[in-house]
Structures are given as C-alpha cells and as structure tokens.
Design a binder for these strands. Structure first.
Lengths: 141, 141
DNA sequence: TACTAATGCAACTGTGAAAGTTACGAATAA
DNA sequence: TTATTCGTAACTTTCACAGTTGCATTAGTA
C-alpha cells in the first residue's frame, strides 16, 4: 500500500460494500482486496465508524458493513471522516513577526482555506453509490 | 519548514514579489522570509522557473523575479508547476486481477481524477495579485 | 585579471508521518 | 469453552522531503 492512500482505500471499500450492503466483511478480507493488512484496515475504517458511516461487529462472524445507504454517503463525508486536509496551511514562520509578513501569510492561508472548502463542496456532490456504478456491472460478491 | 509546504512557500514568495515585481530577490533573502534555507528555495523556485513563471539571474547581483505580471499567474499555474497531485490515485493491487475488482478500481480512480481536475479549475480562478491583496496594504519591501 | 556574489546541481544526512507488524485484551457466536 | 473478530497499544520499517555541504558556473566589479 502506498503513501497517503487512505482515502483511496476507504472509497474502494465503501464502494465495494455498496454492492451488497448487508454482507459483513472482515478486516482480513478487506485487507486482501486492498493489498494491505487487517490492522491498517481497522485503523482507516475505525475513523469511518467514528463518523457513523460504518458499523463494526466484534466476535465470531463479526465484521464491517455500511451504517447508511450508499446513496446517503458522500465523498465529503468520507474525506472529512479521515481528517485529512489536502490543501493544508502552515504555521507562520518566525519571519512573520513583522506585521506585513503576517498579513501576507494570513492571505495565503485564507486562499488555501477557500480552496479546501471548495474541494469539500465538490466532494459532497458525489455519493458512494455513484462510485459503485450502475447495476449492469453486477454485484461484487 | 513543514511537510507539503512547497505550495505554501511558492505562493508566499510569488505574492511577495507581486508587491515589487522589478526587484531581484536572492534565495537567501527568500529563505529567511520563509524560515527555510536557500537550497530548498532554489529547488522549489526552480520548478517555477521551468514552468516559465519566474526568471533567475546568476552571478553577482543576481536573484529571482517574476517572469509574468502577477495578474497573469494563476494558482493553478503554480500548483501544476510544482507537479504535486494532492488527490493521488493508487496502483491497482494484486487483488485487482479479477475484472470486477479492476472495474471498481478504475471507477474510484476516475472519481479521484475528476476531483483533481476540479481542484485545478478552482485554483485557476485566483491569480497571484489577488493573493497579494489590495494596494492599501502598501508594498512589501 | 582577480574577487565576490549569486544560481545550479549533485550527493548525502536527518526527520517525521504513515504503513506495516506483533501481541493481546474484549466481545461474541457456535 | 473454543474460535473468531474487532480494538488498540507498542514497536519497526519505509519513504518522501527538508536540510546540508560542496563545488562548478555565471556575472558584475575593482
């Protein structure tokens, strides 16, 4: 598994689940599909559980399933659940003690913030069932 | 200097330059403003030079200046010059040999690709002079 | 010419965040 | 009571990137 691929792993898994929402999938199973390992899967999906997008069941024949209908989960929900900020802003450097420098830094930060917001708005336009695709493709076992 | 801060460094520097486009600034000077060091600055700005956004002059009294007017440089130009892809897609895992898996991976990739494109479109709506701000703020020496 | 100040670049080290791994406790179905 | 699964902590590994050093090249200046 590559770097910064948690969003990709999450989307892949949720889309997969959209195909058969009632079935429980184990971390091991998902890990195999994603080319990674169960603990990493639990880490990533744990964030989605905290956000109320997934439900996990412990014990024998436990596993993961969607907490909502695939058409009610937007990509923004997933992105925000993972708590990643792609267009991150930086701390002001020591040089920014000067007020002019500080003002410039503020403006750069504000612009990046706006870009981040527009990214989230864009993400909210697509839902998981859109990613899963049309029914002709059949179900993913 | 923090992680993934190259875009921030680039925007900060270009915005700064927008204040007095004719003045040459040395890497050392820029580094001090940004709280980093000259070689890192040359690395980042070198990408912008390759993209035709900046001009560098070697030798005594050399340095960096804008190659274009601040109102002709969009944030998308800067982002693309740095060759960073914030919404990265993954290689298909070994599990994707199955055609259904492969198709799903393709769809996830396509969605992420569209998000990336929309990010660039959004970035292209802002130019460097917008970031520099209105004239009342005065020039940045 | 010699000197100085700047970029360009290669090669290397240091760092930190995220992936990967191991281990074990808790929960739950069979 | 046994097997299976998640939850989580602790640790190691990996890797991209910042940081650093050194030197060649370029160009202005005395």
């Amino acid at each position: 598994m590559k770097r910064n691929s948690r969003l990709s792993l999450a989307l892949h898994t949720l889309s997969h689940m959209a195909g058969s929402p009632d079935r429980l999938r184990t971390s091991a199973e998902i890990a195999e599909h994603s080319g990674t390992n169960p603990v990493v899967v639990r880490r990533v999906l744990g964030k989605l559980r905290q956000a109320g997008l997934l439900i996990s069941e412990k014990g024998h024949s436990g596993g993961w399933r969607l907490a909502l209908k695939p058409e009610d989960i937007t990509l923004a929900d997933v992105y925000l659940a993972l708590d990643e900020r792609m267009v991150a802003t930086n701390e002001p450097s020591e040089a920014s003690v000067c007020s002019v420098e500080y003002a410039l830094h503020e403006r750069v930060s504000r612009v990046l913030e706006e870009i981040e917001e527009s990214l989230v708005r864009k993400l909210s336009e697509t839902v998981i069932s859109d990613v899963h695709g049309v029914k002709e493709d059949g179900e993913y076992q």
